[in-house]
């Protein structure tokens, strides 16, 4: 009897463990990588929430680093991140653009009146067409644009203190945006 055969089950076991570890290591299986990283922000023309007769185009938002936050009043997670957005607006100079996604104008206006308006500009994507161009598959999603209007980062899901401090704020600083020191 060949002794080495005794080690076959051990080898198989080891292999299964390695594959398992790799599988569990795939964090956030629900989060898809954006296909748009390093791509220019897609062309769009969208009415402004406050003045629907004013149409904003992609070239209007290029020039300064910006955060484009896709939100809706039907989205509970958007409520969860709203306070953080308010803080970001307060603590930093970044241009904060809201894209009100598949929502109703009245509800969106009431939301901003009730909970505060952190945005410099809010645009409406009533039918979700801009969302499709952005590869949005669920609100909230947030895109970080550099001054050339290129997408450098995308966050799917809510922005909390940690995401802001560890992911977004450092990138904004690197792009030259002034951010107040965050007290911890």
């Amino acid at each position: 009897m060949n002794r080495s055969k005794f080690f076959v089950p051990l080898g198989v076991f080891g292999l299964v463990m390695i594959l398992g570890a790799l599988g569990l290591g795939l964090q956030d299986r629900g989060t898809l990588p954006s296909a748009l990283i390093d791509e220019p922000f897609p062309e769009f023309a969208a009415p402004e929430l406050a003045h629907p007769d004013r149409i904003v185009q992609s070239r209007d938002i290029v020039g300064k680093p910006a955060l484009v936050n896709v939100w809706a009043t039907w989205c509970p997670t958007c409520k969860a991140e709203h306070d953080q957005l308010m803080k970001i607006a307060e603590q930093s100079d970044v241009v904060l653009i809201g894209l009100n996604y598949k929502d109703e104008r009245d509800k969106a206006l009431r939301w901003l009146a009730d909970f505060g308006d952190p945005y410099d500009l809010v645009l409406m994507d009533l039918d979700g067409a801009i969302g499709v161009d952005l590869g949005v598959y669920g609100a909230p999603e947030t895109f970080l644009l550099d001054a050339q209007g290129r997408i450098v980062y995308k966050r799917v899901g809510n922005i909390n203190e940690a995401v802001w401090r560890d992911d977004i704020a450092p990138q904004l600083r690197a792009l030259g945006v002034r951010i107040q020191a965050v007290e911890t």
């Binding site: 898809l32 990588p33 296909a35 499709v132 161009d133 952005l134 590869g135 598959y137």
Partner: peptide, 8 residues
Amino acid sequence: LQARYGDF
């Protein structure tokens, strides 16, 4: 669609 949503 691939350009917007990736290979996924």
